[in-house]
Design a protein around this nucleic acid. Sequence first.
DNA 1: CGGCTTTGACCCGCGC
DNA 2: GCGCGGGTCAAAGCCG
Length: 568
Amino acid sequence: METRPERHRHDHVHEQEAQEGREEDEAVMEHGAALSLQRGATLFGRRHDEEAGRRRGEIREVDFFSRDSGARGQDDGGGRGMPGGGRDDINIGLDLMTTTAAATTSAGEEMMAVKNQKIEASAVEVELRRVVEENRRLRSMLEELTRSYGALYQQLLQVTQHRQHPADLMINRSSLAHTHLTTAASHNTSSTRQLLEARASSTTTAQPHAVAGVEDEASDGAGEASPSLSNGGNNNDADGKRKASPDAMAPPPRENGEQVSSELPGRKARVSVRARSEAPMISDGCQWRKYGQKMAKGNPCPRAYYRCTMAVACPVRKQVQRCAEDKTILVTTYEGHHNHPLPPAATTMANTTSAAAAMLLSGPVTSHDGAAALHGHPAAALFHHSSSIPYASTMATLSASAPFPTITLDLTQAPGGLAGSGGLLPHGLGLHRPPGGIHPVVAPAMPFPAPSPLASMFLPQRAPTGLPTPTGLVARQQQSVMETVTAAIAADPNFTTALAAAISSVMAGAGAAHQAQPTPRGSNTGNAGDQANGSAGAATAGPTAAGAHAASAESPRFATQSCTTSTT
DNA sequence: CGGCTTTGACCCGCGC
DNA sequence: GCGCGGGTCAAAGCCG
């Protein structure tokens, strides 16, 4: 038939379009579909009017497509329609499509719609193939990182077994960190090297502590199931100052028998997060109640004390204070263990602090500058590694002077000199997009030992797992790191919003269901006195940010922002 | 009315 | 022992 060549040509053309311009295709498809619908409706009405009387009883509506051709053939008054055949319909449709509008019949439009569906399907298929390929690539990257981590971790364990020889240990550590750097390495930067060197020298000065740190680390590394071995005890020794409602701060016995009580009766290590925010509090997914405020010496800004109110007797507290030097920086210090499950958003933040806590507890709290501790801890690998990532330079130090061991994660500094911008951190999107078209904030993160007792303080109570297998440990650590990184980004409301928008645009068709995560009170801070939140950043945490939290808490993992440190 | 914030008082540990 | 500073308590007030 003469229409077949036409049809083929159109198919070809549309396939080309499918590969070249999806938007155009989509527009066409939508139009076609709409047209088809419209025509279908018209046709239906007409058919209903004309034929209903004489062919009463036939269910034409249901059999719309298959019967059309016949009906249309009659409508057109021509022999063009083939009685009953679906393929013939296609021919007709194409023919109509290429002819004038006057000659166009509803059948043509319907065929157009069918055709468009095919085109759409092929486009989706192409896209799917691309995504699968990318997924494969990412997976191989992850596997490689996992392998590297496993090797390094084994090496670390061996080192800890020889801790009686501090000198050797030190050397091994340096090589460890160095090894990691080279492993991670393609992105190595000079700043990372400087950082590493600085830490190496610190290690030299704080060698004995470093040894202790490794010892603790070994216990931590052995698994979070043995928290009692953590240096939490050490911390507490150093922590004698706090009167501390011991009962309040002592974590309740875990259902799994995990004796966290061994952690310490008094105060525990703290994790401090510095982030730029105009809001009075950063969004961390928990509900807090302010129970006090005090002017701290040396800082014109008052320090606010909050208590977790998500559970009746949750001992977790946090302090929020603006940085004296830069009032746009909000310093949030967490302390204690949640005794209740946390919402995803809160878990994300919890994991962030867990990561830091893992480092803190694994390191010597009394080290001169804390660098030694970091240096010896596998978690340091994360930070080293992150430092080597263009978008994420990370550093953390422990406080030496603070009454309690404190680690500060500084999320205020943007790599690439953006730190001084004074704004929040939306710089990530688009500004530092790495080559390759991967999401700007997606970067491999190095797994590190699972959080020990302190680490669990922000985590929901877990089921007992016993000593984790290396594999499970690695997996959990990876997740933790990923979430750490995620939370670091999520801490920035603006960034979160932008990220959420980006994600939704990418995931539009697929699973945009994640978007809004229902959070109580419409805010993931849950803080009651949030008028300021409403106007400032944290409150952007509304649905969008919450969505980002949710998304981040699940799987796409994002690289951390910069993380330098401060001392308390 | 309940929950939250505010704010002054109080407690405690540390340093001198 | 005293003063200082950090942290907490609790009454009063505010707010939805």
